[in-house]
Structure formats: structure tokens, C-alpha cells
């Protein structure tokens, strides 16, 4: 166990790997948005206001296909429903006396990776602190929005001449998720991970990726309740 400071600066340091992962992914989003006919301002606005990677990529496809706004909104909202579980899971790991007065601000930045990194830090003995949460959140958010802006400026055809770079960037998000999973891996989590994985594959193949994601998360969390 270690007791490290939980200030804003250490939050920014913890955000560094996330920012390094976010920037190229957001860059790819900016490029894809321009390719799909979105203006630079629209693409940056999506990153500023939605701030959820996978659903932003899906939003491009939905808007470009002319889907009604309410149908698109419903799909994207359902996709992000998983975030409901992050706050309570984090506060549970932080302990009953953890401060949350300024959660109205840092909670906005509670993305998959920020949640995973914060949880990993707590699991490794760091004490919870709100300035720390602002540090991780702002670092990641800045990388996401600036990556999008640079991607839109590069334009839709930016990566066409470099298919290997495009392929490598495309693997950035899975690699980041896998590394986060390894960082929180414990013996007790193995059955949870196995059930979540199987349920995700089953739900995706049988119904849709969104059902697979929701089903995997709920089935995995339920497996944690059942296990002794």
C-alpha cells in the first residue's frame, strides 16, 4: 500500500497515458467527422458536449444516414447508460468519508478510461481527492477536444496515404482498454471478467453491439454479487 498525494498535479500526471491515448483517437474522430460532411465547428462541438468516444463515432454514422434526431439520441443515450455505474463504484472504492462536494464538476469527466484509471490508482493505495479527480478529468478532456480540433484541420483524406498509421490508430482504443483491464486485474475479478466477456460476445452476435455492451456489464457485475 502507498499513500500518495491526491492533488491536481498528480491527477494530471495520471491523465497522461489517457491523454496520449485520447489524442490520436480524437484525431481519428475529427478526420472521420470531416469525411462524413461535418463542419470543423460541429465536430469540435460534439467532442465538447457529448464527450464519449464510441457514441460520437456512432453519431456520425446516424446523422450521415439521415436518422431522425430522437431515434439517434435514444440509441446514443442507451449506449452511455453504463456510466450510471461508475460514480457509485468509484465512491465505494474511495470510502465513506471521501469528499464529493465538487463532484458536479469532476463527474462530467468520468469517462471509461478516467474511471478505470482512478479506480486503478485507488486499488494501488492512493487516497481519493477531488483535486486529483479534476486533474485526471481536465487532462483527458483537453486531449480529447484538442485531438478532435487537429483532426478536423487535417481533414477527411489525412490518413489515406498512410494506411498503417490509420490501422495503428484504430487499435489505440482496444489497446487502452486492455491495458486498463490489466491494471485492475485481481484474482477475485477473474470470474467477473470471464462472465462479462462471454455475455458481450453473446449479446453482440445475437442482438447488437449496444445490447452486448450493456449485457456484458450487467452480467459481469451480477457475477460479482453471486460469487462468494
Amino acid at each position: 500500500m502507498r499513500e500518495e498525494t491526491s492533488g491536481f498535479a498528480s491527477g494530471l500526471v495520471t491523465a497522461l497515458p489517457i491523454a496520449l491515448g485520447y489524442f490520436p483517437i480524437a484525431f481519428a474522430f475529427g478526420v472521420a467527422a470531416t469525411k462524413a460532411g461535418f463542419s470543423e465547428a460541429e465536430a469540435v462541438m460534439l467532442s465538447l458536449v457529448i464527450y464519449a468516444g464510441a457514441s460520437q463515432f456512432l453519431a456520425l454514422a446516424l446523422v450521415a444516414s439521415g436518422a431522425p434526431v430522437l431515434v439517434s439520441a435514444f440509441t446514443l443515450v442507451a449506449m452511455n447508460l453504463r456510466h450510471v455505474l461508475y460514480g457509485p463504484a468509484l465512491m465505494r472504492a474511495a470510502g465513506a468519508d471521501a469528499a464529493r462536494k465538487r463532484a458536479w464538476g469532476w463527474a462530467w469527466g468520468l469517462t471509461d478510461e478516467v474511471f478505470g484509471a482512478a479506480l486503478g490508482e485507488l486499488a494501488r493505495g492512493r487516497r481519493f481527492g477531488e483535486p486529483f479527480m479534476y486533474g485526471i478529468g481536465l487532462g483527458a478532456y483537453a486531449a480529447w477536444v484538442s485531438g478532435t480540433a487537429v483532426g478536423t484541420l487535417a481533414g477527411g483524406g489525412a490518413l489515406q496515404a498512410y494506411p498503417a498509421v490509420e490501422a495503428g490508430l484504430g487499435f489505440m482504443l482496444p489497446a487502452l482498454f486492455l491495458a486498463l483491464l490489466l491494471s485492475i486485474l485481481t484474482r477475485a475479478a477473474v470470474p467477473v471478467i470471464a462472465v462479462a466477456g462471454v455475455a458481450t460476445v453473446a449479446g453482440t452476435l445475437a442482438v447488437s453491439p449496444t445490447v452486448g455492451i450493456l449485457g456484458g456489464m450487467v452480467a459481469g457485475a451480477l457475477a460479482g454479487v453471486v460469487r462468494k
Binding site: A93, G170, A189, G197, G212, G216, M217, G220
Partner: peptide, 28 residues
Amino acid sequence: AAGRMARFLAATGPAAIATLVVASVLPM
């Protein structure tokens, strides 16, 4: 602190991240 809700929430993190690994690798 104890009870089913606590265990459910403690398992949420690994479950969510494992799901995202599988969901992002599956299309590849």
C-alpha cells in the same frame, strides 16, 4: 458497506472494462 449492492458495485469496474475490451476487439 456490505451486502449485495456493495459487491455489485465492486464488480462493476472490472465488468465494464472487460466488456469494453471485448466490444472494441470484436469488430477487428
